[in-house]
């Protein structure tokens, strides 16, 4: 088993506590302190959850892609390191599915209140849905493929997904749009009122540390599973080497 020092465990608990505290502070900022949106009323407050989570659900796939590339590179050269990369790829893929689900659901709630419809086939909604579909199919592949191949096949699919996402983004971009223009860096009229910024940044920070927290937790869990598997394989080999009495 992996050596888990008390220091490491304390850091993990501290990190967990900090993420809860930041999320609680961000909740207070977003729900009670920020002035109500003039056009949307209280519904607009979902912005502080929807946008940070959408941003993060676009970052985790990159980690998954890079980890998969490292897996493919180390697969034959250093199998033990490759397993670490694979555990990271699995952890980020699962968190991507969770975050993009939350992003889609909060977006739907907002759309129902503001647009009057739950869903529309708009570029950004569609590309987020496709991202979600791709990573669900990634997890499906991990579940269905035969034991020895899972890591390699999943890494290959991750490369395909990473190639697909920019194509999806470009191809749907000029199809038709209803989603509000990008709030940050979207043109001269973009940006938000300064009074909204603290709530937004606190929530962004909160969901980032929380995301890292669950990625690390899932990573550690997968590593323990891998070590248990190796231990079992080793015992089986040792048992087969024993001379029968």
């Amino acid at each position: 088993m992996e050596q888990r020092t008390p220091t490491l465990r304390n850091v993990a608990w501290l990190w967990f506590g900090i993420s809860i505290a930041v999320l609680a502070f961000g909740f207070r900022q977003a729900i009670f302190l920020v002035p109500t949106d003039a056009a949307q009323g209280n519904v607009g407050r979902i912005f502080y959850y929807h946008v940070p989570i959408a941003m993060l659900s676009l970052i985790f796939p990159y980690i998954n892609f890079v980890a998969s590339l490292f897996y493919l590179y180390w697969r034959r050269r250093e199998p033990l390191k490759a397993l670490t990369a694979d555990a990271l790829a699995l952890a980020t893929a699962e968190v991507t599915v969770v975050y993009s689900s939350i992003c889609l659901l909060t977006g739907m709630l907002w759309a129902r209140a503001v647009w009057g419809i739950w869903w529309t086939w708009d570029p950004r909604l569609t590309s987020m849905l496709l991202l979600w579909l791709l990573y669900v199919s990634y997890l499906m592949l991990r579940q269905f493929s035969s034991a020895g191949q899972t890591h390699t096949l999943a890494a290959v699919l991750s490369v395909f997904a990473a190639v697909d996402v920019p194509i999806v983004y470009m191809s749907i971009r000029w199809w038709r749009t209803q989603h509000p223009a990008p709030v940050f860096g979207g043109g001269p009229d973009s940006g938000v009122d300064p009074s909204m910024l603290p709530a937004f940044y606190w929530n962004l920070a909160g969901w980032t540390v929380w995301g890292i927290c669950i990625v690390v937790f899932r990573f550690a869990l997968e590593r323990r599973r891998q070590f248990a598997e190796q231990e079992a394989a080793l015992q089986a080999i040792e048992a087969s080497l024993e001379i029968p009495q």
Binding site: L133, M140, L141, F144, S145, S146, L153, D164, I167
Partner: peptide
């Protein structure tokens, strides 16, 4: 080829192929 040795490979192929092909299908 990727799903060749998987359990229920008949199901796995559309599950993988459809999400990847959606931009091409749209075009």
């Amino acid at each position: 080829a990727l799903g060749l040795r998987a359990r229920n490979r008949e199901l796995l192929l559309p599950l993988l192929l459809l999400p990847i092909s959606l931009p091409a299908l749209l075009a």
